[in-house]
Nucleic acid binder design. Structure first.
Length: 538
DNA sequence: AGTGCCGGGTG
DNA sequence: CACCCGGCACT
């Protein structure tokens, strides 16, 4: 794993250009191969990676040192042998400060990049804005050339710095299936621009089917050709555009949003690697109690689900209006949710607070009197005392960052219990939650010491009863006895009497003693049944 | 070991 | 619920 991470880390800086073809689910495909994509030697050498062949699907203008140049992201010549000029710009991070990858390039972009702004590498190209102008593919070659010229002009060959985010990782093989798909692709491009190094990382070389190619052009031109002014911005107001579902991209959600596209069923793994690549030490130290939840980033939607599939389905059905039964996912949902970490201890406490009695802690009620509470009863104290607003917290506004809800109480006592916290949490899941089969994986395992120890028996209650003891025990007709019994019931938990709470042996002779074994038939039934003697009670 | 009886199983 | 019994605590 570690080695893989290392490799991944080095590969973070690569930018994959071009549109591949292949899997039916480009986004997923891109993610799934994310870790395996790495810089090919070819790319490192400055030539165009093999996978860049194929028709040009996009281009953009990079403002270099004040002069703008439009660049091909790929090539129009299309015959797949991709050594296009445009391809050159596809190596960015590789040429730059490789030694300190985490301070520059992809990491910075990933962490802070806004959709409109492209932080430069090593201070260069700061403030470069990306302009999408795909509407005129015919000019691409020319533009590419001009860009190349501009690039040479402005930057000496030896110092030529890569152009950050100058590649749009385009998901491969989008199904050109209509407007919705266009939107998907548009969203993909937009998101990719802000998260380019890690997200949507198509790997292998493959030519783009012509339909897909066309679809891309159409999509991009249709969606963004209106922004001819150049500076491509995407602010909240754009969400009003009816045909383009847009996630809320507020600043605070953006950070999470950047992490969001990794939410698959292997989210844990992906998350780990992602954080690793982000040099974020926190996740590695994630406690077991920290549960990754998935929060919908759609505007005014605070939906939080425990599974990525759930949130994807939610987004797909609720926000994207997709067919709910279809499991087909083009990956667009990935852009509209983010991971959050929730302390599951809190959640379980929240759950337990809703439960009248913990089944296995059936022992003493929390109001157990002090004589019996000479035990590590912290669990119970916490259970009553710290009613953290866990569910409320989640339901009101799931924090987009970390949800640190402190609790110490777990839900079950005896064994590690898997508590499916997904949709039930704070009423978060409204039916479209987890798919069958994902539930267990999303449950949490909480285990702690069995509280049976807690109530194990000091003879406290016994002594107590002895002092009040009345002649007959367990005689329903004896008022005093019933009183005692009631007191006993108050003191001892309604459930099992624990060893130590055992009733003291009666001092009266019992049927057995009186009649002996020979006359067992003369015994009271209780004695016969080895129950407390009903005839000779204490 | 003998005794008392609790808890649980069975019908 | 009646009946029975394993098992435990106490003597």
């Amino acid at each position: 794993m570690d080695s893989r991470y290392i490799l991944d880390k080095s590969s973070v800086r690569t930018r994959v250009v071009g549109v591949g073809s292949g899997g039916a689910d480009p986004c997923r495909a891109g993610r799934s191969v994310l870790h395996d994509s790495r810089v090919t030697p070819v790319e490192k050498n400055g030539t165009v990676p093999a996978f860049t062949h194929g028709p040009v699907l996009y281009k953009f203008v990079v403002d270099v040192g004040g002069s703008a140049a439009e660049v091909d992201g790929g090539q129009t010549s299309a015959k797949g042998n991709g050594l296009s000029p445009g391809g050159r710009i596809s190596q960015d991070g590789e040429k730059t400060g490789r030694g300190d990858q985490k301070d520059i390039g992809s990491t910075g972009i990933l962490k802070r990049a806004s959709p409109t702004h492209c932080p430069g590498i090593n201070g260069q190209l700061r403030g470069c804005f990306m302009h999408l102008d795909i509407s005129n593919p015919g000019k691409q070659a020319e533009l590419a050339n001009s860009f190349r010229a501009a690039q040479v002009q402005n930057v000496p060959q030896t110092e030529r710095q890569p152009l950050p985010s100058s590649h749009i990782p385009v998901p491969r093989n989008r199904k050109p299936s209509g407007h919705a798909d266009k939107e998907v692709m548009a969203a993909t491009v937009l998101t990719s621009l802000s998260t380019s190094p890690l997200v949507l990382y198509p790997t292998s070389a493959s030519t783009v089917p012509e339909p897909a190619n066309r679809a891309w052009k159409e999509v991009l031109s249709a969606s963004y050709s209106s922004s001819t002014s150049g500076n491509w911005s995407w602010d909240a107001s754009d969400q009003s555009v009816p045909s383009t579902p847009s996630p809320p991209l507020s600043n605070d959600t953006n950070k999470n949003f950047l992490l969001s596209p990794h939410g698959d069923d292997i989210s844990e793994d992906v998350t780990e690697s992602t954080h690793f690549m982000f040099e974020d030490p926190i996740p590695r130290k994630r406690k077991n109690s920290m549960k990754v939840m998935f929060k919908c980033l759609w505007k005014n939607c605070e939906k939080v689900l425990s599974t990525s599939s759930g949130i994807q389905r939610h987004i797909r059905t609720v926000h994207l209006g997709r067919n709910s039964d279809s499991d087909y996912s083009d990956g667009e949902e990935d852009f509209y949710y983010s991971e959050i970490e929730v302390n599951m201890d809190s959640l379980t406490e929240g759950l337990s607070s809703l439960t009248p009695t913990s089944p296995t802690t059936a022992g003493p009620p929390p109001v157990f009197p002090s004589p019996l509470t000479d035990v590590p009863h912290s669990d119970h104290i916490n259970m009553n005392g710290s009613q953290t607003p866990a569910p409320t917290l989640l339901s009101q506004s799931a924090p987009s960052t970390l949800c640190h809800i402190r609790t110490d109480h777990a839900y079950q006592a005896t064994a590690p219990v898997s508590v499916p916290v997904g949709p039930e949490l704070a009423g978060l899941g409204s039916g479209n939650g987890t798919r069958p089969g994902t539930g267990t994986g999303n449950g949490i395992s909480v285990s702690w010491q069995s509280p049976t120890v807690i109530f194990k028996g000091t003879p406290g209650p016994v002594t107590h009863i002895r002092t009040v003891s009345i002649g007959e025990k367990r005689q329903p007709t004896a008022n005093t006895l019933t009183t005692v019994t009631k007191n006993h019931a108050l003191i001892t938990p309604p459930a099992k009497s624990v060893p130590g709470t055992r009733k003291p042996r009666g001092e009266a002779k019992k049927c057995r003693k009186v009649y002996g074994m020979e006359k067992r038939d003369m015994w009271c039934t209780a004695c016969r049944w080895k129950k407390a003697c009903q005839r000779f009670t204490d």
